[in-house]
Design a protein around this nucleic acid. Structure first.
Length: 303
DNA sequence: CGACTTTGACCAGCGC
DNA sequence: GCGCTGGTCAAAGTCG
């Protein structure tokens, strides 16, 4: 992974994403503004960042928020467990705080190019066709197709977070400019093409960067669920399957003082946009079938 | 014994 | 063309 592939909140949120903010000084909502918003809204994604008291100013990074509330599940980020002063880490994200009506459109860049795409997996095989066709027999000159990715950072001492799926590690590489290796995981389901990369931030060793790529074609281990819905399943599924990582982790074993970060990266070639986070979905799925419905066992949701 | 991890080798893409 | 780097493979080792 070169620098472009690193999860850079500033890039993810301001350069690649289109945002609008609303709310007041204490509650700031981020509004996605286009197609991707619709995609997420299908799954009832709703991100609500609550600003840390006292952190004023016209602009703020996500680090200025101490509460993250997705789809009305205030504990998604484990905030009940987060000690006072904990921040949702998104340092560097130039998020403007203010009323939606006064929001500067420049906050959004809605780049449709997604430059990081170019080198993210230079030579890599991420996003390649299903394993059975893409392993060693991958033909020369055959371009690897990268699937949409969803990345997030979690402040944790544990590298590999439990997310309800079973993963098999298939590689580990030293990362340039980082003392920490990157681990590569594949979903153990033979029919599933989802991959996951886990690495620690070189800048902040306490932060684990997890990147999911692809979509699960099955359900989590232990709690079957109805099939995915929607025509954007390739995007949403990875989102719905990835996001609960927070939930799991924070709720079950997140250490004191931990915090987390949401970043999103859409790297699919030919796709114009990136994921956005909706503030107030125009429509939601039934509670249990929402963002977490795909992965979080019901018993774990009531936290 | 099957599932999983480790790790060195290999390959492909990219920049120079 | 060459070297660097990221990503994957696969044999060997480990674990339950």
């Amino acid at each position: 992974m070169d620098d472009k592939d690193k999860i850079d909140p500033a890039t993810e949120f301001s350069a690649e994403s289109s945002w609008e903010l609303g709310g007041d000084s204490d509650s700031v909502y981020l509004f996605g503004s286009d197609r991707e918003s619709s995609i997420l809204s299908e799954f009832g994604w709703n991100l609500h960042l609550e600003k840390v008291e006292g952190s004023g100013g016209d602009t703020a990074g996500f680090g200025d928020f101490d509460r993250i509330d997705v789809d009305g599940r205030s504990d998604l980020a484990g905030n009940q467990q987060l000690p006072e002063g904990s921040a949702v880490q998104c340092t560097g994200a130039a998020v403007q705080v203010g009323d939606a009506s006064t929001l500067n459109p420049s906050v959004s860049s809605s780049s449709s190019e997604d430059p990081p795409e170019k080198s993210t997996t230079s030579g890599g095989s991420d996003g390649q066709p299903p394993p059975e066709t893409a392993s060693k027999v991958r033909k020369k000159g055959q371009k690897r197709i990268r699937q949409p990715r969803f990345a997030f950072m979690t402040k944790s001492e544990i590298d590999h977070l439990e997310d309800g799926y079973r993963w098999r590690k298939y590689g580990q590489k030293a990362v340039k400019n980082s003392p920490f290796p990157r681990s590569y995981y594949r979903c153990t389901n033979s029919k599933c093409t989802v991959k996951k990369r886990v690495e620690r931030s070189s800048e902040d060793p306490t932060i684990v960067i997890t990147t999911y790529e692809g979509q699960h074609c099955h359900h989590t281990v232990g709690f079957p669920r109805a099939g995915l819905i929607g025509h954007e399943v390739s995007y949403a599924s990875q989102l719905t399957h990835s996001a609960p990582q927070f939930y799991y982790y924070q709720g079950v074993q997140y250490p004191q003082g931990s915090s987390l970060t949401l970043t999103q990266s859409h790297q699919a070639p030919g796709e114009a946009g990136e994921y956005r986070v909706l503030p107030e979905p125009t429509h939601r799925l039934p509670t249990d079938e929402g963002l977490l419905g795909d992965i979080v066992p019901p018993g774990m949701r009531n936290q």
